[in-house]
Simulated scan of single mutants.
Amino acid sequence: MQIRGQEIPIAATMVGAYPRPSWLQGRIFGSRETPLYTSMSTRVAYEDAVRLCCYDQIEAGLDVLTDGLQYEDWEAEGYQYDALWHLFTEMLGGYSRWGAPNEYHKYSNYYVQECTGPIKWVRPAYQGVVDAVKRATDKPFKIGFLGPTQLSILTRDLHYNDQKAVAMDLAAAMNEEIKYLRDTFGLEAVQIVDVAVHYQSDQWLTEATNRALEGLDDMLKFWHVCYGSVEGQPDVAENRVADVISYFADCNFDVLSHELANRDYSEVASFKNFPSDRILCAGVIDDHNIIVESPEKVADGIRRVLEVIPADRLMVAPDCGLALFPRTVSRAKLNALGEGARIVRAEL
């Protein structure tokens, strides 16, 4: 694939989350009516954490970096997804900053925000994220958004009485946010994270995803189809690629990020029908297993994927985020990823 005009076969990246340093604690960003950062000392600590996260990725030889979701409160057991689920919507007009607990027991630690009026983009939510990564590195990087369909599921709708309407207005606000970050800070790549396709594949899900990515043809657009990982436990146990492969052809993304290692590559054959104009970012590092893969094992996994996807249309990454491991384990897994990619690249 091409990254900044350079052809890189089997490029490597990270899906998103990475452990925070022990000295970075609590909430980083404010909300709609407050300053961007909770304090200046918090900003300094956060930017230092992003710098370390980028350093680990560069040392591992990754080609597209991420911010590592260093604004997420991973050390608070049972509450890791609070900022991931609420950061964007807390900055929007039409949303409350509170709500009742999630009715689904597995997610009862998280409150469900209420939509009380028309959803509109008011101020940037991820300005601090992009700024911190640009201060840390000049390498290509992406930032991740929980997709509009997923956010609509996590919303208690008291205004529209229509989930599609919620998702479409969330998508429009997200599109405005991404364009602002591109035009103001030069953001080159974005990643949508969504698990909704596993549960329902109505046409409006495609419409909402495409609306969020509309007019971004000059950016590299990732879509991470997440299987869920609360406390390391997946939400979706069954294999679904064969059932939803046609959905991918209708979505306006460049790179599909999908886990394979955790499922022992059992879904590889289903990607024979993957759209020929798209890039597959194959998960070759198991984010549910604390044992660090050897570079040779990673290389073997990459070779299995190469049986159905050519090297110029293949990226590699961990299955999902690495934040739930000790930092030493996550760093070792990243190094195995980079070295495994280099082994196979040398064989081409």
Rank of each mutant, 00 (worst) to 15 (best):
R182C: 01
S257G: 11
G232Y: 06
A332V: 12
I28A: 02
K106H: 14
A323S: 15
T42Q: 14
D169E: 13
I279Q: 01
R32D: 03
L146E: 03
D48Q: 14
P234C: 10
M40V: 14
K221V: 10
H86E: 06
M1I: 08
P35H: 06
V197W: 07
V44E: 14
V230E: 10
R342G: 00
A49M: 02
V197M: 12
L337I: 07
E267T: 04
C226R: 03
S266I: 11
P234A: 07
G94F: 06
D73A: 08
D138A: 09
H105R: 13
Y126H: 12
E176Q: 15
T34G: 06
R4H: 10
F271P: 03
Q191R: 04
D202P: 04
T149Y: 00
L213Q: 01
A132V: 10
A45G: 09
I8Y: 09
L314T: 02
N262L: 14
V316L: 09
D56P: 04
I290P: 13
A332C: 13
E238L: 11
Y71K: 10
I309Q: 05
P310R: 03
G147F: 07
Q203K: 15
Y265K: 08
R156P: 01
T89Q: 09
K120V: 09
A269P: 07
Y95S: 02
A336H: 00
P19A: 10
L181K: 03
I290N: 12
F141E: 02
I302L: 07
V284C: 03
G78V: 12
K297H: 11
H258I: 11
K272C: 15
V292Q: 02
S294L: 13
Y104Q: 11
D218I: 04
V230Q: 04
F253W: 09
H258T: 07
G301H: 02
V268I: 14
Y247K: 01
Y71E: 13
I28M: 08
A346W: 03
Y95K: 02
W121D: 00
Y265L: 12
K272W: 12
D157L: 05
G16Y: 01
L52P: 01
A299F: 06
F88W: 00
I28E: 01
K106S: 06
M14T: 09
W223F: 15
V284N: 03
Q150E: 09
